[in-house]
Design a protein around this nucleic acid. Structure first.
Lengths: 239, 239
DNA sequence: CGTGTGATTGACGCCTGTCAACGTCTGTGG
DNA sequence: CCACAGACGTTGACAGGCGTCAATCACACG
């Protein structure tokens, strides 16, 4: 039943779409936008839906209009490693297209999403015809690269405690907190562990430690950040 | 004395340069090459030279003609984490240029190198005027991204033993072995540790283990690969 | 021959992963 | 309304992988 509702397409011209000002599309001309409007698809995804799966050959990329997408790799014995989250304005799945390889990650919907679909053809022609767009894509890929490099160094050198503190800070920066300082993203303990790169039990224990030290407050999945300064210090943030 | 010899420029037109067929430049037209010839610099670097340092604002990128460059980040207490190696045909330092940020890594010469220097201006105008070039750069950045993602997952989930085996395989694929199956790259134990993300002593102990198990043979820094099949199995390689 | 860098080995202990048991909550079906 | 299953969270016990420290060796070089 709900399966039939999946990926439901709906109508929205690119011209009226918010993406034109706040995304990778921001450099497009009005002409480009009009042409794009006829070529791209736009679909609704529900929490839990898989956008694409590691190992697949993709036929296109997706630009996130709303929602949050989890990008992860599946490692030893099916354990997932969360690489990053995609949110409004990000383009996902382009790596596989550009290098003509199967996707090296899977993408799963964390919060209901609307994705704009660009076929390989459309993507390439946009890249070719519009230098600004091509620069935007290049820049996003460079940004991901920087974050990946930092993450590699952290995971190789920091303790789990340091990394967990760092992840909390990063989540705060990326998804912000509400008026009550509560992190605006809903993650299971296991998912947090899969970002940090550790066992679920370790996350649970360290979160309680942080709570005892009055760094955070916990109510189920709600994590309230009480003391970013000390968290930062624990995280040993370099930049 | 030797300082004065550093980065010695020399003459080589792009037209006669091997880079035109085996590098990121392979898509350039004859016209592009001629124009490029007048704009780019070409310098000799010696082993140990720093090409650029983390935190610097770069004024251009480098394309590697010959030599091997180590790309690394400096983490906790100055410990370096080797992110990757650059060799012939690779472009390095472009991330910082394109995103207008200080370099997030340092680059150090491992084996005497000849680097072709492209100013930011030249790089951008090449990107703008030549779609093939722009695609090459995008593809290299995507390749780095895939490798980084895989590495994150490995370092987060695998044991040191597994990672060391994997690194040996990767080094073999990247730098090849001579007729005697000896790895064609000279690394200190500490450098190997800084790739794997572990302590020098752990690398030493595990290398001896591998030797005892007849997986490799050791003579100083020469590492002979005796049994890739079993190394691969230990590495738990997924792809 | 002294100095310095890198390699090796041993001892030690803690961080962290694994296993197991149990608690909690939600939704489902009888 | 209760029983049950299943997903998630929590806690404790335990062992061992791996990092740290220290001492020694090997080798190159001025």
């Amino acid at each position: 039943m709900q399966q039939n509702m999946k990926h439901q397409p709906f109508v929205l011209t690119c011209d009226e779409c918010v993406l034109k000002v706040q995304s990778i599309f921001r450099g497009l001309t009005r002409d480009d936008l009009e042409e794009l409007s006829s070529k791209r698809g736009c679909s609704i995804y529900k929490k839990g839906d898989i956008v694409y799966r590691e190992g697949s050959y993709l036929n296109g990329s997706y630009v996130i209009n709303t929602g949050i997408i989890k990008i992860f790799k599946t490692g030893i014995e099916g354990r997932e490693q969360i690489i990053r989250f995609g949110k409004r304005g990000d383009i996902i799945g382009f790596r596989s297209i550009l290098s003509n390889e199967p996707a090296c990650t899977s993408a799963k919907v964390m919060e209901d999403a609307v994705l704009c679909y660009l076929s390989t053809e459309t993507l390439l022609s946009l890249l070719k015809s519009n230098f600004n767009f091509s620069l935007e894509v290049l820049q996003q890929s460079c940004k991901e690269l920087r974050e990946a490099n930092t993450f590699i160094t952290d995971i190789a050198q920091k303790t789990v405690r340091e990394r967990l503190a760092e992840v909390l800070i990063l989540l705060k920066n990326q998804f912000d907190v509400d008026n009550d300082k509560v992190l605006q993203i809903n993650l299971t303990r296991e998912e947090i562990a899969n970002i940090v790169g550790t066992a679920t039990e370790s996350v649970i224990r360290l979160l309680s430690e942080f709570k005892n030290e009055n760094l955070i407050d916990l109510h189920g999945r709600k994590i309230k950040i009480l003391d970013d300064t000390r968290l930062n210090r624990i995280a040993n943030m370099m930049d």
